[in-house]
């Protein structure tokens, strides 16, 4: 349903951010994109979101070519990015202005309840903790019932405890409507906890280095041996992608030692 074909991105300064990236993502699939810094993973996500334009190739959702933000696609940023002048419920309902008031209010209540913030609707964003604010941001994206939900390192600014609980929570939220999810992360464990499939991007220029299937049943136990083994395989793929750059100038110093 989400189809990325030969997407390339060259920055105005001539730097290749992405080179010929192609991916087919199925309905309800959770895909994680991991990669080191400079691998273009955030750029790829912004292109899917319609916030950036590719210099080559195209992205389609159910056949529609993405040229601008699309109603079927929601995005959760690294920071909550709540609008500070709106209350929690106004923030969550921000994208629902086209709906009748009663229906919008009912949807907002339902999604606030799902993210565990029932009764917090009247609060100002400044009154929330980092984890609560990010849950509001998730609610704001989910309330519009997107068919595709994009997440750009959504938990990277949170402490480890909050992060783990929000990861589990996200899977639970996903299970209601089962949107297609594309998650960008640099956290290997996060990718293995959440994803059905993990794409490893190699840096400079960003391109697909490896694709890993995560054949683990849900809910996933972070301490299980097979979980650990998938993590290990993913780490190896990531290490490999970091060292296999085009041209071998990076490996030359290692040879010289």
């Amino acid at each position: 349903m989400l189809s990325i074909r030969n997407v390339g991105k060259i920055y105005p300064n001539g730097e290749h951010a992405l080179l010929d990236v192609s991916l087919e993502i199925g309905q309800g699939e959770i895909l994680a994109i991991v990669g080191g810094s400079g691998s273009g993973k955030s750029t790829l996500l912004r292109i899917i979101a319609g916030l950036d334009h590719p210099t080559g190739g195209s992205v389609r959702v159910d056949g529609d070519v993405i040229t601008a933000p699309h109603p079927a696609i929601g995005l959760i940023f690294q920071e909550p990015r709540l609008l500070p002048w709106l209350t929690v419920e106004q923030n969550v309902g921000f994208g629902l202005s086209g709906l009748p008031r009663a229906e919008a209010a009912q949807r907002v209540d339902q999604v606030l309840d799902r993210v565990g913030l029932a009764g917090r609707g009247g609060n100002w964003p400044r009154e929330l903790s980092g984890g609560m604010a990010q849950r509001v941001a998730i609610a704001r994206a989910l309330v519009a019932r997107p068919r595709v939900l994009l997440l750009d390192e959504p938990f990277s600014a949170l402490d480890a405890m909050t992060r783990a609980s929000l990861q589990d929570h996200l899977v639970e939220l996903w299970s209601y409507d089962r949107p297609t999810m594309v998650l960008v992360t640099h956290d290997i464990e996060e990718a293995v906890v959440l994803a059905d499939r993990v794409v490893v991007l190699s840096p400079k220029p960003g391109r697909i280095g490896a694709v890993l299937d995560v054949a683990l049943s849900r809910p996933r136990d972070r301490d299980a041996p097979d979980f650990e083994s998938v993590k290990r395989r993913l780490r190896q793929a990531l290490d490999h992608s970091l060292h296999a750059r085009i041209g071998a100038e990076e490996s030359a110093p290692a040879l010289a030692i």
Binding site: F77, L83, F94
Partner: peptide, 27 residues
């Protein structure tokens, strides 16, 4: 810019972007 991007994700532009994002943010 990050707040304005939120407006773009919700497909606001022109007058709607000014009214719902830009003006409140500069209150």
């Amino acid at each position: 810019r990050k707040i304005v991007e939120v407006g773009r994700i919700f497909r606001l532009s022109g007058f709607a972007l000014v009214r719902r994002i830009l003006l409140p943010s500069i209150l």
